[in-house]
């Protein structure tokens, strides 16, 4: 693989192309429930990534033969909008998107209590509106929030974040340029309460010690993302509850449904 811009450094005096230090996460903004019709939804801005996630279910599975006798059938679709990339991406799902759909499903499924809904289906749709590296991690993070918003019973949230190697250094959360021109990328997702790693991929070349360092760093990143997820959820649901409390004082017995 040729490195296009060998002369252009990705880290200069400890500062990366977008102004971050090597262990900094990009700015993350999470919005809970932006979509009307979906049972649950979330919008995430992760640096320049802009991603929507929607959840439906538990609902009937179509086609019906996919229904499982002992658990809900869980599906994920990771999809990039044609305008989300520098060059237009064809709308049909690419092989990359199909693989990412699969790893996303596998990353989220262990957090969901699928056995509570035999024969039902739960669907997650992730739409990348704008991509800037690290979309799978951002997508998983958003989808987990959307699952909570849909009221799906879960053991834990799933928080995702990548680490990688650029200019010989292990850094957190690669952006697009760093991903393309760097040496390695290690996306990770965890269920933070148990520490179970539900997504782990790597491409590029890392020595054994570098990999361990990258994994450690990515796990730290996941924990920061987890805090942001909790913050977003608390904010969303506490706000909704506030007016109810006011009514409680004035109208007394009408709630407690």
């Amino acid at each position: 693989m040729p490195k296009k811009a060998k002369s252009e450094k990705l880290i200069r005096r400890g500062v990366r192309t977008d102004g971050r230090k090597i262990h900094d996460l990009r700015n993350i903004k999470i919005e809970v429930g932006p979509l009307e019709r979906a049972d649950g939804s979330a919008y995430i801005e992760w640096g320049n990534n802009k991603i929507l996630a929607a959840v439906y279910g538990p609902r009937e599975v179509h086609p019906r033969h996919l229904a499982r006798p002992d658990r809900a059938f869980f599906r994920c679709r990771y999809h990039m909008a044609p305008f989300s990339t520098t060059e237009r991406k064809r709308p049909a799902p690419s092989r990359r998107e199909r693989e990412l759909s699969k790893v996303t499903r596998v990353a989220l499924e262990p957090s969901i209590l699928t056995k509570l809904y035999p024969r039902a289906g739960i669907d997650v749709f992730i739409e990348i509106l704008q991509s800037d590296g690290g979309t799978r991690c951002a997508g998983i993070t958003a989808a987990s929030i959307a699952l909570v918003d849909a009221g799906i019973p879960m053991k834990d949230l799933v928080a995702a974040c990548a680490a990688g190697k650029i200019d010989g250094k292990i850094v957190l959360d690669l952006n697009e340029v760093e991903d393309q021109e760097g040496d390695a990328d290690v996306p990770v997702a965890i269920m933070p309460r148990t520490g179970g790693i539900s997504l782990l991929q790597m491409d590029g070349i890392l020595s054994q010690t570098e990999f361990k360092e990258a994994l450690e760093l990515a796990l730290e990143g996941c924990k920061q993302v987890y805090e942001l997820q909790k913050e977003a959820l608390t904010k969303a649901y506490v706000q909704e509850e506030a007016p109810v409390k006011d009514e409680e004082k004035s109208e007394g017995e009408e709630q407690n449904e």
Binding site: K102, V103, R105, V106, E109, P110, V186, I190, M191, T194, G195, G196, I197, S198, L199, L200, Q201, M202, D203, G204, I205, L206, S207, Q208, F211, L215, E216, L219
Partner: peptide, 16 residues
């Protein structure tokens, strides 16, 4: 002995 690719599959999890 360098690591070039990793893929976790199936729905279980691994600890560090």
């Amino acid at each position: 002995n360098e690591i070039c690719a990793i893929q976790k599959s199936l729905i279980g999890t691994f600890s560090q």
